[in-house]
Amino acid sequence: MNARRSAGLDLIKWLAMLSMVIDHLRFIWPTAEWLFVVGRLAFPLFCLGIAANVARTTPGQMYTAANGRYLGWMLAFSVLSEWPYHALDVGTGTFNIMPTLTLGLLLAWGVHHHKRQALAVLVLALLVSDVLMYGWLGVVLPAAFVLALRGGRGTWLLPGFIAVAANLSNQWLREHPTAPITLMALAVAFMSAPLGMRLLHGLHSRQVWPVGRWGYGFYPVHLALIKLVVP
């Protein structure tokens, strides 16, 4: 893996966390629909962050200590995030976002390193799609970004369309396809791909405060803090 830190990647992580927090502020202000629209940036940008990390590794070298640590952190916070997620969103029928991202990481590794295990991950995602946030298409999105990062002009279209389709796992959006908030939300999801890829490649000499391993804990901690102030 390239040891040189990517300012663009850190910026993507910051924007993903910021849009995630904005989205979750809906638990405090349920009538502020624009928060949901802004929040459609978060998941695709997190997926792009995973894809960028995967794409920087040497194809064929999947079973490394660094990748083992990466997977370990993802699995640990998949478990640690479950209680604060369900405490805040009591009526949800899905796991928190981390299992989707963890399966997405495994699928992206399989695609990047040309491993047959990718098919097994995809089959698993299809089988448990109903309990995954963003469904099986959410699992596919990091791999779609990996493919887009290899390509040239216009390759962002694939993750853009998948981001839109993954958001349609939301039943309300499916039932109200022509509602203004639906159209705005899907437009933001679609444009998250070119925006994220532009940010990833657009910063070279600038400095961005790095997002380290503390970023894993940010997810459950911010959920717990919002829960404390929910009326």
Score class of each variant (00 low, 15 high):
P99F: 02
G212Q: 13
A120E: 12
G154S: 05
R40Y: 09
G49R: 03
H86E: 03
H112F: 09
A55Q: 11
H201I: 00
V146R: 10
G151C: 05
S129I: 00
P84F: 13
P177D: 13
V164H: 09
L11H: 05
I162V: 15
F95N: 11
G104S: 06
L127A: 15
S81F: 13
G8F: 01
A163R: 05
F43T: 00
T155S: 14
L137R: 08
F145G: 12
L105E: 00
R150A: 11
R40K: 15
P84I: 12
L35D: 00
L168N: 14
A108H: 02
P99G: 08
I12K: 02
W29R: 04
L75P: 01
V140I: 15
R56A: 14
H114L: 13
I97F: 09
N96W: 08
H201Y: 09
L122I: 02
G202H: 12
W73G: 00
L35V: 03
N170A: 09
I28L: 15
G217E: 10
M191V: 13
V111E: 09
A108G: 08
G135W: 02
V139P: 00
H86P: 06
V146D: 11
M98H: 00
A76R: 00
Q61A: 08
N53W: 05
P177I: 09
W156P: 04
G104W: 06
L101A: 07
W109D: 05
L41D: 04
Y219I: 10
T100W: 10
I12M: 03
V21C: 13
L127H: 01
H86Y: 12
L107N: 03
L173A: 04
N67G: 14
F46L: 11
K13Q: 15
I12Y: 02
L173I: 04
H114C: 08
A118C: 09
R116C: 00
R116T: 12
N2A: 12
A3W: 06
G110S: 13
Q207V: 09
W214F: 15
P159R: 08
L141H: 07
G160Q: 11
N2K: 14
T182E: 01
V208Q: 05
L173Q: 02
V123K: 12
E33A: 12
G91S: 06
A7W: 02
F77Q: 03
G72V: 11
W136H: 13
A144F: 08
L147M: 14
H24P: 05
L126I: 14
L48H: 08
V230A: 12
L199R: 08
L157W: 10
L168M: 15
G151F: 01
P194I: 13
I226D: 04
V121S: 11
V139Q: 01
L106C: 15
R116N: 02
L195Y: 07
S205M: 07
R174H: 01
W172E: 04
H114A: 15
M20D: 02
E82H: 06
G215C: 10
